[in-house]
Structure formats: C-alpha cells, structure tokens
Design a protein around this nucleic acid. Structure first.
Lengths: 281, 281
DNA sequence: ATAGTATTGTACCATCCGTTACAAGAGTAG
DNA sequence: CTACTCTTGTAACGGATGGTACAATACTAT
C-alpha cells in the first residue's frame, strides 16, 4: 500500500498537527524520503515527537520504519521500467495534447478586451439569463454558479421551461448563450427571439459561422477539442470562469459584499464540513 | 555532473577496494542513496573508513556529502515539472499560467491506470449516481451528460432531493462524487452513507486529506487553481471527460449502439439546427 | 465552573552514524 | 632482509537522531 493511500485511509483520525504534517509530506515527498524527523518537524513548525506519533498513527513502529517504507516505494518505482516510460513517453497522450492546445487557444481568443466586452452587459444587466446546448452545459453551470454568488437575478434556463422563464426577459437584461458546433435548435431559437426583443446577447460559441455570432458583438470564439466521441467543454468552462472573474472586478465591493453575505449564510447553515486552516504561510 | 561520470573520471586513481565499492554502487544505486556508510562497507566486505576515503577521493568532503549529491540527483528526476513549477512560483501568477499548470498537473494525476481504475465500477454498475459540491458542479454535469449518452441509469443527484434519490442505491450501483477543498457537508455525508451501504464510491477530489479519499480507492486527486475569488472547475471537467472517454472504450459496441439510437432520436425530434456533416470517419 | 480527555511540546536517553587517529599488514625497491 | 610506502581495518569520539516519559495546555462535556 502506497504512502498516499495510507494517509488517505487514516485521515479521519488525524489531529490538526497530523494534518499539517500530512500536507507537507504530500507536497514534498523528498522531505520524508531523505530528511530526518526533526527536519520534517521544523518544516511544519512542530516537534519531532509529533512526527513520530504521526508515523505510529499510520501503523508503523516509528519514524524510521515509515521512512523505510517510503524509500522502498521509491526504489521500486525507480527500478521498474514504468517510471522511465512515463518520464519520456509523450506518445500515449494525444488527448492531453489536444486539450492543452485548446486551453492555450482559448486564452488566445479570450483576450482581456474580449472578456471585458462580454462582462460589460452582464455587469449592468438587471437579470442574467443563461442558456446552453449540451456540450457546453458545464460552462453554463460554471457561469451560473459563479455569477449567482456575486450578483442577484442569475437564472440558468432549463430546456423544458425555457419559454416560461424567458418570456419575462427585457432589454435591461442580458442573455448569455453557450453553444457549439451542432447547435441546439432550442438554444439558438431562444437566443434569436431574445435578440429580437432587444435583449443583449453574450455568446460563447465556436466561430463566425455560428448562428449565435450574427446576433451580437459581445462574443468569443473558441475551439473545442474532441475527447473520445464527444466534445470537450473545457474551453467553455474557462470562458465562464474568466467572465466571472472579470465581473467580480468590475462590480467591486458590490460583489465582495455579496460574497460576504453568502459566507454568513454558509456559516449559519453549516454548509461546509471542515474549515481546514489556510496553508499559506 | 552525475555520480556515474564522477566515478568514471576517477577510476584510474582507485585502489582495489575503491574499485569494489564503485562496482557495488553502480550496480545498486539505492545502496548509496538510502544506505549508511557502514551498510555499503558491509556490502563490499570492507570497513566504513574505506567508504569515507572513497568519497573524499571523488572530491567530496566525506560520505555524507557524496550521499547528499546522489539524493539531489534523484530528487530532480523524481519531482515532476509541474510540481517544481508550483514550488518556486508561489507569487501572483497570472490566471492563464495557473490554469495551464493545473491542466498539466491534472493529466499528471489522471494516469491511464487511474482512469481505468475509476472507470471500472462505472462500467459494471447498474445505476450511476452523481453527486457534487458547488465548485465541481461543472464536472458533475460534464460526467452526467457524457455518461448518460453511453449508458442507461445515470442520475445527477440534486441537493434538495438527495435522500429521496439515493435511498434506492444498492451495492450493484456506483456513486461518483465530486468535491473539493471546502467540502460540502451534504455531499460528503451522502457519500459516506452510501459507502456504509456498500455502494462503491468513485471520488474526484483534491487529495488524500479529503474526507472522500478515505471512503474509496477508486479516486483521483486534483489541484484546483483559483480564478478570481472562486476555484476553477476545469480539472474536474477534465477528469469527467477522460472518465467518459474511458467508459466508452470499455463498453465498446454497447456504448456506440446507444449513441446511434440517441442520434435517431435527435434526428426525429429535430434537436439540432444545422445537421453539419458528422466528423466521424 | 470543573473534571476529564486529547493534544502537543520539553527534556532526556540510548543508539547509531560518520569521522578520525592509529596501528597492522601487504607489497616493493635497494 | 630491511626500510619505505601504500593500503586497509580497528577503536574510539563527537554529534545528531529517533524514541519515550512526562508535564503543560487546549478543548469538551457535564
């Protein structure tokens, strides 16, 4: 059993110090492999006995035995051919390259100006309506989730209730539409209808040929790579997150206050499990 | 200069014992890396001072310094580039770099073995229940969307109806849980309850310290970068998409048939706007 | 408020390590 | 054979390490 799994299986019996030790050890495995117990202790600002106790809690006789276990683990990885294979084997990763390329391309397309332009109508809108096709649903969710934390009146429009929801949309609002390549009829028609009603449209889509592109100048054009038989929604998610980030910047205190109030609710309703202490020094 | 080269360049000034030491050290590098001077001495049937002299002859101050040199050599090979980048780049890196780093790190973590291991219970499961926290919702959506196209009985569990949905979960099913850093109480407790009911758990989370990690060995550990005030869901989405891709591979024709039937429905209901020519060869 | 528990740090000890000083031995030239 | 050098092992030392006992502290529940 690897040291990582071992830590995972014991992490519920950890004291706060144990947790700090675990974090440090996982972050820098060499510390445990080569260092002394005192060195680990100093790294996490605690005493060596705590390190020893940590080791015993993991089922070892003491620190030495834990260290030996880690060393054996490393030894095996080092003598086995799989490590060397992983080291220099860039061939079995076409998907990785495609996605990383797409991510890079997305940032090329999402220039600060582009993001600012798209953020503008969202900042001033009374209501934000978010529409999405299938492959870009993850992006829509990311946007809806992020935006609704920093401003009111953000609605993710579900397909089955689109008309009911959207019939209230006005020119002071904004509609953010995600859709790619095989454009979903519903999304596009809804967007077109909204545009006809003078509702500003922000389009996250895939090129000038998209039916969404003709509806608005607030848009970005992304390439979507294929992962297996389906299209990746990673670029859409990135666009959504950058957009949220920009809107936060422009809303300023208004957004921050809302986050604060949200935090109060989270605390009051005990939404989160453990508020682990921030690891920043 | 590597230790091998160092030995080669000094091999003319070696005494017979030095030569034996050199042979042993080259044959089993771990001996020098982890062992003590006495251990090396015993291995070559000599005394520890000879080991020290060997080290000094190589230009080091003593055995300790030689060993440290070897350890540093190993450390460099072992620390992944993304990890190293993170190590020395704790400043306010631009969002692009942070996300690109995170994407790279995600692929480091999501090894083929890891993906295969996580896909396995999903392939054989009767029902797939997908749970998620807030920041990882986009990943959950991506998974739910992708999986439901290639196999039946995939349900995204909404928070307000979690208990109602999950009370039907059985040991033949699988629960895929997304959650990160500030773990949502609901998700974690639901996952724990399912685990107690012997429902296999697949966890997409952020490290061995996650409360989800102790529930299952089918899991991956991702780093989530911050974008503005919130955490990015890009790594979670990548994990979801790779997972879908792997399940497609393992289901084989079963998945492809379902995609075909889905396509028939799409055609019949005129779901898409322009039937652009399919890009599949 | 208080008793009890859990957690963490301090002080100390036995051990082992690397190093060094020194002596014993091997080989060699005269 | 002798004197010299080179090589190697033994013995001892200073230092640092991991481990343990114990006390102080924080926290919890009654």
């Amino acid at each position: 059993m690897s040291i990582t799994n071992l830590i995972a299986s014991h992490n519920e019996r950890f004291t706060p110090t144990d947790r700090r030790i675990a974090e440090a050890v996982l972050e820098d495995p060499m510390l445990l492999t080569f260092g002394t117990a005192s060195a680990v202790a100093e790294r996490v600002s605690t005493s060596s006995p705590s390190i020893v106790r940590f080791a015993t809690k993991l089922g070892f006789e003491g620190f030495s035995e834990l260290q030996q276990s880690v060393r054996e683990e490393i030894s095996k990885q080092f003598t086995s051919p799989s490590h060397r294979a992983r080291q220099q084997d860039e061939s079995v990763a076409p998907v990785q390259l495609k996605i990383e390329d797409a991510v890079h391309a997305a940032f090329d397309a999402l220039t600060p100006e582009c993001i600012k332009a798209m953020a503008l109508p969202i900042v001033v809108a009374k209501n934000v309506w978010i529409l999405s096709g299938e492959t870009s649903m993850a992006g829509a969710i990311a946007l809806a989730s992020g935006l609704s934390m920093i401003r009111p009146n953000v609605r993710l429009v579900q397909e089955h209730s689109a008309s009911r929801d959207l019939c209230g949309a006005l020119a002071e609002d904004v509609a953010v539409v995600f859709d790619f390549s095989r454009y979903r009829r519903n999304s596009v028609i809804a967007a077109r209808t909204l545009a006809d009603l003078d509702v500003p449209i922000v389009a996250i889509t895939d090129g000038p040929l998209s039916p969404l592109s003709s509806l608005t100048e607030y848009r970005c054009e992304l390439d979507v790579p294929a992962v297996g038989p389906f299209d990746s929604s990673v670029p859409a998610v990135i666009a959504a997150e950058l957009l949220v980030s920009q809107v936060v910047t422009e809303l300023g205190d208004e957004a921050l206050n809302r986050i604060d109030r949200l935090e109060v609710f989270w605390q009051a309703t005990d939404t989160f499990l453990v508020t682990s202490p921030p690891t920043k020094p």
